[in-house]
Design a protein around this nucleic acid. Structure first.
Length: 262
DNA sequence: ATGACCTAACTTTTAGGA
């Protein structure tokens, strides 16, 4: 089962790139972030025409996440929103069980973690609180001993080798020690970071800022991750980063990361 | 040269992103 995560930075702007990716890479499951539109405006028809079922959690202008699954696989047990704060109205979490004939089910979540900048604003405590809510929910899911994939834009640079210029990020919400510690605490619930389980090399990035020629000089960071429960990690075959999509016309600033499970 | 962007919105300027 091939599971991809991609922050598309507006689904309406990127639907052409997305359907090309679906036709080319043929992922079984896709976790999307930053839809930047409400559910009524989501380009459902184009994606269904490509052979995928769709579940969305949209929001006007900001955030927004979705799960796509390639027929004949199906999505069930949909959860919209992360538990732990009934006042949180930001569309950042959607989860479902992916099943099909002759397929061991996998529970998959699409996550858009808060950016958290500026760090002296309420946005940073919100980010840390979201990470802690995610850890507690992940712990609860883990109790079922299922294959689980928590995939998305974590807005966390885990280690210095995940940034072209780590010194530039030392005071940024994506790389502060407290941010990295919270991400490690999530991993410590028993999750394996899929890419690092397959490839230890420095300099693998998933995001390049539109500004300052970051793409042309490969000034990237690695912030899009797939976290696997032990039952999912046991099935991990390979991970790839679809870097070429950053070089298209009108690209997202993120590229997909895809994990292949047996 | 440390410059340089993109998106949505009750749009002509701002907020948010990372």
């Amino acid at each position: 089962m091939r599971i991809a995560t991609w922050n598309v930075n507006s689904i309406k702007q990127r639907v052409g790139h997305l359907t090309a990716f679906l036709d080319d890479a043929k992922p079984d499951v896709v976790c999307l972030q930053e839809l930047k539109c409400q559910d009524e405006a989501f380009p459902r028809a184009e994606i269904e025409a490509a052979g995928y079922a769709v579940e969305t959690l949209g929001q006007k202008a900001y955030n927004g996440v979705a799960l796509l699954v390639r027929a004949p696989l199906t999505l069930s047990e949909i959860r919209r929103g992360l538990p732990g704060d009934d006042t949180d109205e930001q569309a950042r979490y959607i989860e479902a069980l992916v099943s099909g004939e002759d397929v061991t089910p996998v529970r998959v979540a699409a996550i858009y973690l808060p950016n958290g900048n500026p760090v002296d604003s309420p946005k940073y405590p919100y980010k840390l609180a979201f990470l802690e809510r995610l850890r507690l929910h992940a712990r609860a899911l883990m109790a079922a001993e299922e294959a689980i994939v928590l995939a998305g834009d974590y807005n966390v640079i885990p280690e210095p080798e995940d940034a072209a210029d780590p010194a530039a990020w030392t005071r940024d919400a994506l790389f502060l020690p407290q941010t990295r510690a919270a991400f490690r605490a999530l991993l410590a619930e028993g999750f394996t970071e899929a890419l690092r389980a397959c490839d230890p090399r420095a300099g693998i990035y998933t995001f390049w800022d539109y500004q300052a020629g970051c793409w042309n000089r490969n000034a990237g960071i690695r912030i899009d991750h797939l976290l696997l429960s032990p039952q999912a990690a046991d099935r991990l075959v390979s991970v790839s980063v679809q870097k070429h999509l950053r070089g298209l016309e009108k690209p997202s600033d993120h590229v997909p990361v895809t994990a292949e499970l047996a």
